[in-house]
Each structure stands twice: as C-alpha cells, then as structure tokens.
C-alpha cells in the first residue's frame, strides 16, 4: 500500500529527466551573483593622516610635553639670571678708550659738512690775446 503522496509522485517519476533539464536551464539563466565591490582605496591625505598622526599619537604627545617642559625650564632660568647684559660688562681699558675716542673724532670729521670754498678770482687777461672769446675773434676778423 502507498500513501496518496507516494502514489502521486511515483506516477510522475518518469518525468524527472525533463524536470532536471528545466531546472538546469533556469539555473543557467540566473544572473551571476553580484561581485562585492572592493573597498575604496584610501586617499594619500587620509593615509598620511592615519600613519603620521593617528598611529604616532603617543609620540606626538610625548614630543609636545617635552617642548612644554623645555619652555618652562627656559622661562624659569631666564627669570633667575635676567640681569641686563650691560650691567655685567666690565668697563673698557684705557687703550680701548683712546682708540674709541680717536674713532669717534674721525667719524665726526668725516660726517660733518664741508667748509665753504673761498670765492674764485677773475682770471687775468692774457697779454697776447690769443685766447679771446670766440665772439671777440669774430669782431676782429670782420674789421680787418
């Protein structure tokens, strides 16, 4: 004895090859699965940001702390030894004083305005008269 289902399916079991062919044809027409899109390549800017800043964050923090420490130490030391440099300088020796004085006088002499020149004298007439002005020579030739 068979159940109604067994009886029904057994009656049509001969159609399996044709059903397999139909199934294979439909499967062959299936669109190929969509390939997964590759992840977008990171830009140069983001790569640099990641590798230089984000990855080296502890190093950058340590470097910043070191700079702050140096600044604080420098400020503290300058407040302790902050006297003017002039006050600590020793007075110049007499030789240097005399050289500086000479140099100062030379400087004043060179930079002071020049004295006005004496007024120029009229040149004396030449006895031969060979070097008369041109218009006088013309007068002489016409009268001859």
């Amino acid at each position: 004895m068979k159940t109604s289902r067994e009886l029904l399916l057994a009656r049509h079991a001969d159609s399996r090859p044709r059903l397999d062919a139909i199934r294979a044809a439909v499967i062959a027409e299936l669109p190929s699965p969509r390939p997964t899109a590759p992840p977008p390549s990171p830009s140069l800017r983001s790569t640099l940001w990641e590798q230089l800043v984000v990855a080296g964050r502890p190093a950058w923090m340590a470097l910043g702390a070191a700079w702050v420490l140096i600044f604080l130490l420098d400020t503290a030391s300058s407040s302790v030894t902050g006297r003017p440099v002039v006050a600590t300088a020793s007075p110049p020796s007499p030789e240097v004083e005399s050289i500086l004085t000479a140099q100062r006088e030379l400087w004043v002499e060179l930079t002071s305005p020049a004295e006005p020149a004496p007024p120029a004298k009229e040149p004396a007439a030449s006895p031969s008269g060979a070097r008369l002005p041109l218009h006088r020579r013309d007068h002489l030739t016409t009268s001859a």
Binding site: L8, L9, R11, H12, A13, S15, R16, R23
Partner: peptide, 9 residues
C-alpha cells in the same frame, strides 16, 4: 520540481 509537476499534471 516533482510535486509541482504532479500538481500541474
């Protein structure tokens, strides 16, 4: 496939 075919047939 076979149940569908049996039903339709």
């Amino acid at each position: 496939q076979l149940p569908l075919y049996a039903y339709a047939r």
